[in-house]
């Protein structure tokens, strides 16, 4: 009698403790979530307040003399253009490498490759910048010359080709190399998690390895790859040093990727201009940072929307 009663009381106490644990966990996780939102809001507010003088300033006082919009628009164009080039080059390559590691390479080799990719992701961006400037750019100039001679009718390759090779295209390639590891690593993780059951379903229908990948692996990993690409895009949008070093920026808005006149990007421009900026100029630069902040946010929203659009077909259920 007494023993069961004590046991029951012990049981109850244990339960209460478990519930306390639940509460603590819930409290901390909620706090962490709110904290993140607060930080985000604080950043936005800071940028906004600091940008107000620039927003109010008369057009001719803003750097360049064409108003805030006239100053930021070319930068924004350059930012998006370089990032899109990077994404277009890096994503297919990353998916290919990830599939090779997850489904084709022998196990030993896959492991080695996996480590190599992870290591590449840890290389600081300044190193990529130096590599792009000293090694890649000179080696791309013959290609640019060829492109402008033979494919010059395409606006992207209109030329005249830059003699230094420090073009938008080179910057895009450097950014692509930079984001390749992270996109690859994330895609590989997603592909490795494809349920065996789905792969076997395809195999049992008489699918070849490539067909299995098309039927089971890629559909399962699609939303993950989109997220990975968006993460890469985020990195490319915000990349400062690599672009600042590689790109020879003149401020022109042009789709010509291989010429000597190129738009700069927002982060590279901030890095290059900030040291000498005073007064209103600082405010203008911060306003451009605010624009970047909004764009990055928009990209993330877009990614989320893309992922959710086919959520009921995602296999998450």
């Amino acid at each position: 009698m007494t023993t069961t009663a004590t046991a029951a009381r012990g049981e109850a106490r244990r339960e209460a403790r478990a519930r306390a644990g639940d509460r603590i966990f819930k409290g901390t996780s909620t706090a962490a979530g709110i904290l993140i939102l607060l930080i985000l809001a604080a950043v936005a507010i800071f940028l906004l307040i600091q940008a107000i003088p620039a927003l109010r300033a008369p057009a001719e006082e803003v750097m360049g003399g064409e108003g805030l919009l006239g100053y930021i628009a070319p930068l924004l164009f350059g930012t998006i253009l370089s990032s899109v080039i990077a994404l277009v080059i890096a994503t297919p390559l990353a998916v290919g490498i990830a599939l090779f590691i997850s489904h084709y390479a022998p196990r030993r080799m896959a492991q080695g490759l996996g480590y190599a990719v992870d290591l590449l992701a840890a290389v600081p961006s300044i190193v990529y910048g130096l590599w792009g400037f000293t090694w890649l750019a000179p080696r791309l100039t013959p290609l640019y010359r060829w492109l402008s001679d033979n494919l010059g009718f395409i606006p992207l390759f209109a030329g005249p080709a830059s003699p230094t090779g420090r073009t938008m295209f080179t910057a895009g390639v450097v950014l692509a190399v930079m984001i390749l590891p992270i996109v690859t690593a994330l895609s590989r993780e997603v592909f490795l998690q494809t349920p065996r059951l789905h792969e076997e379903a395809a195999l049992a229908l008489g699918a070849t390895r490539w067909e299995t990948i098309r039927y089971a692996v890629i559909p399962y990993g699609r939303s993950g790859v989109v997220s990975a690409a968006m993460l890469g895009l985020g990195r490319a949008l915000g990349e400062t040093m690599a672009v600042a070093i590689v790109l020879s920026a003149t401020g022109a808005v042009t789709f010509n990727l291989i010429g000597s006149t190129n738009p700069s990007t927002i982060p590279a421009n901030i890095a290059l201009t900030f040291p000498e900026a005073t007064g209103l100029d600082v405010s203008v630069l911060i306003a451009s940072g605010l624009v970047l902040f909004v764009i990055t946010f928009g990209v993330n929203m877009l990614a989320r929307w893309v992922v959710n659009r086919r959520a009921e077909f995602s296999g998450a259920n």
């Binding site: 395809a202 049992a204 559909p219």
Partner: peptide, 22 residues
């Protein structure tokens, strides 16, 4: 083996329709 599997179909213990397909 791919030809063999096309001639000999299989149903698994746990239902495994392709989740992304209708």
């Amino acid at each position: 083996p791919v030809t063999v599997r096309r001639q000999i179909g299989m149903v698994f213990q746990r239902p495994n329709p392709f989740p992304t397909m209708s």
